[in-house]
Design a binder for these strands. Structure first.
Length: 106
DNA sequence: AAAATGACGGTGT
DNA sequence: TACACCGCCATTT
């Protein structure tokens, strides 16, 4: 299983109403410094409906991108729809950031 | 094998 | 708060 696949499977476990940062995903998948590479994985997300790539935000809570129709604007709308807290156009990480740990084998 | 490609993150101004 | 810089990295050419 490639690093990319691990990231995707972890992302699929992020519950609605919560978000995770690229850096956290990287750490969970076992490569703390691979946040940037993960950004690429999201961009080329092959299975958009099944993988909630809209729940991935930057470390400061800003929405840095969304390749699907609508761009970041659509992304924010989806998150608000799910109940994620916002402060202007940034996610309120203190309230909506996933801080629990998800494992591969769980 | 080497270079290019980004939806990053931390630091400094 | 906001930029610009720069180091990092898996994947694909």
């Amino acid at each position: 299983m490639s690093f990319k696949e691990r990231v995707y499977s972890l992302l699929r476990k992020v519950p609605k109403g919560k978000v995770v940062t690229y850096g956290q995903l990287a750490k969970m998948a076992g490569k703390p410094r691979a946040a940037r590479a993960i950004g690429v994985f999201m961009r080329i997300n092959p299975d958009a409906p099944r993988t909630p790539c809209h729940r991935v935000v930057a470390s400061d809570g800003s929405l840095t991108g969304y390749s699907a129709q609508g761009g970041v604007k659509k992304k924010k709308r989806m998150l608000v729809e799910e109940g994620v807290f916002f402060i202007k156009d940034k996610v309120d990480l203190a309230k909506s950031c996933l801080n629990n740990r998800y494992t591969f084998t769980s």
